[in-house]
Write a protein that binds this DNA or RNA. Structure first.
Length: 479
RNA sequence: GCCGCCAUCGUCUAACGGUUAGGACGCCAGAUUCUCAAUCUGGUAAUCGGGGUUCGAUUCCCCGUGGCGGUACCA
């Protein structure tokens, strides 16, 4: 069997987002699940749309996600160069070959002429005006400096079949296939020529790409036939959609990939989410490691229809992967993406404790920014909130006094549960206390907030001294 | 206009002719409970429409409808 080689072939016209990512990942999974190669090729044949820095941004995203290319502009490889603008003479050579074989012809029609033709015609295809031009004559005109493009001479009245792994046999009537431009007058190839030539030369076994290419893949099959090359396996991929049913894009609210890092998402969560929309192993398993995906991946289970991007589900995945991380790891990732807490110079052990008690409340790591200012500054209490709604002032004062008294003598402070035990002992030690009579006022005294982690957790984070101080303050306020 | 693709809960999806149409997210309710989370339990909700084929269609075929994509010297 031929070695599996798949590629991701973006044009550097902007940043990568989560929609493109899915196509990348399917190609990557396909290659790596078969011990194959994954190649990055830059398709920069449109000089007018080039966006400075987009390749670097993409690579930054891939590095974060752990997507590794075996060959590419950065990695090199035996099929270098991997940037199409550096391969112009190659395309020229193959375009010439097609001319000589009678599969292509020079076209001297100006763009204005073509536009006019299109407005007039009921069919929007090229008239084929230059088809019949004498080849030698045309070559002479070109050598004399006349502007020309090279078009594919699409054979009329035939059927072309694209055998696609996802979509099955897709048939095209060549009468509806335009004489596609292969070489532009600026000497650059169009996508159609470049992709076929490079996929062949780079020995790509599986052409994975967004299904917006499905309609033009008939042209590509024709090109393979013209060159006499073996067809690769076509794998057209359904897109990720925005809420309005249109393809996700920068304009449709899609974030650059690297933004997910800044927002505090974990790479595994992003990968797991996006791969599992559009593909599944048929076993109802939703949470899968990369290794499991590699193990189970099968292109034949790729979904045909597009899927709508849904942050809620991504968030759910993120929470799951977050829960697998230690407080240590959470902290270092948090500090890595930049933190509001940096300036506070608190020691790491303290921050880790905060993370430990807050972690069930966050969706992304960045949410830690929003958590409890009561860890860092003294709370301002409202007197009427100190008393639990089912309790009385007298009982509350009684409880707070007992807690304050007991706090110095309680020995176990290793984990939040130890302090739960402490508070519970106060409750149990006194007949007329319910949990709320003790827990609520302590929690409020420590946090000054309507909502917060449990009093025992707060005590654990704040420590004996600060906890005692705040409780004392509450007592004074209430008395 | 023409060409192509697609169509199961709100969303992501399973069911390769026979299931009470399954799972997940979300949502709702209950349990837990000192608040908010977390957790656990339960619930809600779908085969686009019409014809065929078949003993039997979510599943196969045809016709509609809808959505998306292509129709560039853009990819």
């Amino acid at each position: 069997m031929k070695k599996v080689r798949a590629r991701f072939a973006p044009s550097p016209t902007g940043n990568l987002h989560i929609g493109n990512l899915r196509s990348v990942l399917y190609g990557y999974l396909l290659a790596k699940s078969k011990q194959g190669d994954f190649i990055l090729r830059i398709e920069d044949t449109d000089q007018t749309r080039y966006v400075e820095g987009s390749i670097d941004m993409m690579l930054e995203g891939f590095d974060w996600l752990g997507v590794r290319f075996d060959e590419g502009p950065r990695e090199g490889g035996e099929f270098s160069p991997y940037i199409q603008s550096e391969r112009l003479e190659i395309y020229k050579k193959y375009a010439d070959e097609l001319i000589n074989k009678g599969w292509a012809y020079y076209c001297f029609c100006s763009q204005d002429e073509l536009k006019e033709e299109r407005i007039k015609g009921d069919q929007l295809m090229y008239s084929g005006k230059c088809r019949a031009l004498d080849v030698e004559e045309s070559k002479k005109r070109v050598t004399n400096g006349e502007k020309a493009v090279i078009r594919l001479k699409v054979p009329k009245g035939r059927e072309v079949v694209v055998n696609d792994v996802v979509y099955g046999d897709v048939k095209f009537d060549t009468n509806f296939i335009d004489d596609q431009v292969l070489m532009k007058s600026d000497g650059f190839p169009t996508y159609h020529l470049a992709v076929v030539v490079d996929d062949h030369l780079m020995e790509i076994s599986h052409v994975t790409r967004s299904n917006e290419w499905l309609p033009s893949s008939g042209k590509h099959v024709l090109l393979y036939e013209a060159f006499g090359w073996e067809l690769p396996t076509f794998v057209h991929l359904s897109p990720v959609l925005a809420d309005d049913g249109k393809k996700l894009s920068k304009r449709k609210g899609a974030l650059p990939l690297i933004e997910y890092k800044k927002l505090g998402y974990l790479p595994q969560a992003v990968i797991n989410y996006i791969v599992l929309t559009g593909w599944n192993a048929g076993d109802n398993v939703e949470v899968m490691s990369w290794e499991e995906m590699l193990d189970k991946f099968d292109v034949s289970r790729l979904q045909k229809k597009g899927s709508t991007y849904n942050v809620e589900k991504l968030n759910w995945y993120n929470k799951i992967y977050l829960s697998n991380l230690s407080a240590d790891e959470l902290l270092s990732r948090y500090l890595e993406i930049g933190s509001n807490w940096n300036v506070l110079n608190l020691d790491k052990e303290h921050l880790k404790k905060i993370i430990e008690v807050e972690r069930s409340r966050i969706i992304t790591i960045k949410d830690l920014d929003e958590m409890g200012k009561y860890y860092f500054e003294e709370p301002e209490l409202e007197v009427e909130k100190i008393v639990f709604k089912k309790s009385t002032k007298e009982i509350t004062l009684d409880a707070l006094h007992l807690v304050l008294k007991g706090i110095d003598n309680w020995e176990k402070w290793d984990k939040p549960e130890d302090l739960f035990e402490f508070l519970k002992s106060i409750v149990n030690g006194n007949d007329h206390f319910s949990n709320g009579d003790v827990f609520w006022p302590v929690r409020y005294a420590l946090s000054g907030a309507d909502q917060s982690p449990s009093p025992n957790e707060l005590m654990w984070v704040l420590g004996r001294e600060k906890s005692g101080m705040r409780i004392k303050q509450a007592i004074e306020l209430l008395s």
